[in-house]
Design a protein around this nucleic acid. Sequence first.
RNA 1: GCCCGCUUGGCGGAAUUGGUAGACGCAUCGGACUUAAAAUCCGAACUCCCGAAAGGGAGGUGCCGGUUCGAGUCCGGCAGCGGGCACCA
Length: 853
Amino acid sequence: MPYEHRSIEPKWQARWRAAGLHRTTYDAKRPKFYALDMFPYPSGSGLHVGHCEGYTATDIITRWKRMQGFNVLHPMGWDAFGLPAENAAIASKIHPRIWTYDNIATMRAQLQRMGIGYDWRREVATCHPEYYKHEQKMFLDFLEAGLAYRRESWVNWDPVENTVLANEQVIDGRGWRSGALVEKRLLAQWNLRITAYSDDLLAAIKTLDRWPERVRLMQENWIGRSEGARVLFPLVGRGEKLEIYTTRPDTLFGASFCALSPNHPLAAELAEKDARLREFIAECNRMGTSEAVLETAEKKGYDTGIAVEHPLIPGKTLPLFVANFILMEYGTGAIFGCPGHDQRDLDFARKYGLAVIPVVLPPGADPKTFQIGDTAYVEDGTIFNSQFLDGLDVASAKGKVIERLEQLGAGKSAVTFRLRDWGVSRQRYWGCPIPVIHCEGCGIVPVPEKDLPVTLPEDVSFDKPGNPLDHHPTWKHVACPACGKPARRETDTFDTFFESSWYFLRFCSPRAATAFERREVDYWMPVDQYIGGVEHAVLHLLYSRFFTRALTECGYLDLAEPFAGLFTQGMVCHATYQDQDGNWLFPEEVTRKGEESYVDAKGRPVTVGRLEKMSKSRKNVVGLEAVVGEYGADTARLYLLSDSPPERDLEWTDAGIDGVWRYVNRLWRLVTEPAAALPPAGTAIPNDLSAEAEKALRLAHRTIAHVTDDLDKFRFNRGVARIRELTNALEEVPGTGAGEAAVLRFGLEIATRLLGPMMPHLAEELWLQLGHKTLLVEEPWPKADPALVAEETVTVAVQVNGKLRGTVELPRDVDSGAAESAALALPAVTRFLEGRRPRKVIVVPNRIVNVVG
RNA sequence: GCCCGCUUGGCGGAAUUGGUAGACGCAUCGGACUUAAAAUCCGAACUCCCGAAAGGGAGGUGCCGGUUCGAGUCCGGCAGCGGGCACCA
């Protein structure tokens, strides 16, 4: 009789719910374990199997930790603000709120059907005013602490949509939806001062020892600390000095020009009296900020006609350019160019006929003949042509020149970060309103706390381009809280990363009147295990780390880092299919015909594309309902974990899920078929066991030890393999004698308990079939008997000169002499030695004997 | 361009961290059961060489070299694939 998952799985889900199993409460006496999934966006297509890998991994860890006695917090919620809801509203006239809550209902049911043990009482949706009102308060506190500020910054502006676009939304310099040429525009935007913590965010990465190395590295690169100097170049004929930033102050004697960003204040000032410069700057700004544009853009400059004095060579002046490759956002927005030792400067110098003065001599080169060709020399070497720096290496020269500049008051050492402040303004409806009011008389006035939350109006239209909040007839018109005169509400909303930067704190006390209760947060935080996709390696994780610091500074909590452990799971992939016209096809629309050929429903040939991450756009998705309906949640769960290590990508195949389904049924038969012959639960294992029974007993204990270790290290695939080894062996135990039957029962119970976290429904049913009245999920995790983990005899490999010649069975931990003589007695060995004595014999206990002849 | 990671049978992957390479599974092939199919069970399977066979020998973890009694694992070089960042001064 096959395993009836259709009735069994819902039965246990109901039992767990009735037992309140996943409800968690504060309990200072018990050790806590906070496991967190990256909460999903409630998308219109719901969940497919690809979404479930990470959730399943977290569920295994939490069920395992619970069996080990931890007070486990495992919440789930919805990252519910965002653009797709507005697009759906435009496309199908559904209000974003209704669309979002419908999707939440669908996805919640899907997660419940997978048997994931969330504490649903703690569910939060970020689009609910009870959630976002707290972040409006946080924003006001940030504002007061100087951590939030309004500033004009350069953004990608879509002139048709009338909105700011994120860099990702600019494709080949055009708006992703309108196709309009994107402009760079200076716009007043709200920013969060993440750069106030640059040093700390970087330094603390060292403490995140349970994060993947890769993610830590990506964060380091993103923060991008560089050491260098700020140097002042006096402007000839003007009282002021130009401040530049450089990481190569050692090449200062090779300077042949200075250059400003087109957005540098000095450039703007000069442009007022120079029409051609104005035109040049406008041209630079028309160019998008996207990668593709920058890559193909030629280096261009405009000579301002102004000269700057070299700070270390009296009387020497350099031309000052405005150049398109200088970024205002990095350093001081101005550089000095040393063409000999920087490729961009070299390209620029060649184009404008500027001097190329080498000042770093490669090892072994002749200073009299060394010249720079088409490639700048950027490696280490000996400084020359540089007065007091001559003869030094690059590192020493940097130190020495900075020392001299400081003496002269012409510069100082400086650290610069790549990290920029976080612009959080979005011209969108479906987001959290930014709680400020613009008053002509009073300026920017924070919304008083008593007026929070500032909620979104319901009656909005999406007919016109631009921000619906801005179009709304009444919403933005308010009285100034300070002076009472008519004023205008801020119509921008927060970037949705704002909501996801603190949701893990809200989960600790999700119904609290304040953002969260200190007692709860102090108990539960930090998150012990965070699991999600690597695509959030930088932005979300960095923003959350920043929020933790900012909230600590504002007195909300006292926490160094939000996530103690991080695991990034791989993607679930599937082959892609296209018909002859290039249309994507769903897997179920495609039939295999012959070895390598596939056809669509009408029998026309189908092109099989490469494996790609499951995505709606390529239709290579496998629906959750279809899989769970046919095979059950447990089979899907085991499949997601049994083949590949979870950090790696996984291919979903029909054959693979079939294979797991066969195993599920094999297990079912293994337990239910001999059940009658098994001794009752609790039967002790006799001492006098047959050799086979003894072997099976030891294997069971060894499996406990291995699986425990594998779960601890996220090696689910290995753990599953170990359990399969055990169940394979149990199939061979005859179960006839009393000892064998007792061992068989013991082995089956161990397999069931070890599978509990992975296939909770099946394991629960097997536990019942084995005659237990308790809920398996409430049983403790089994412990291996150390005396039984080790085998009594070991197979020792025997090598001659490093080549395997045979094996010998030896008692465990036998002394080296005995192992050596057993090895030397092996016919294969005597044959090789031909009567000679070996030169050397290396014995590795319980492992290997190598005879060197 | 810079930084990082990976490369093991037809496929996904194991290998106690320097000690019997290919655990566990998928797919394949052969057989049993069956009127038949499904399901299930049993078995084979890295390559080459010697041998009728039983067996034996040699090679093999992307490529070349090194260290070591012993290398998938460590070191140097190369290639391929993947990821992150990128006019960042």
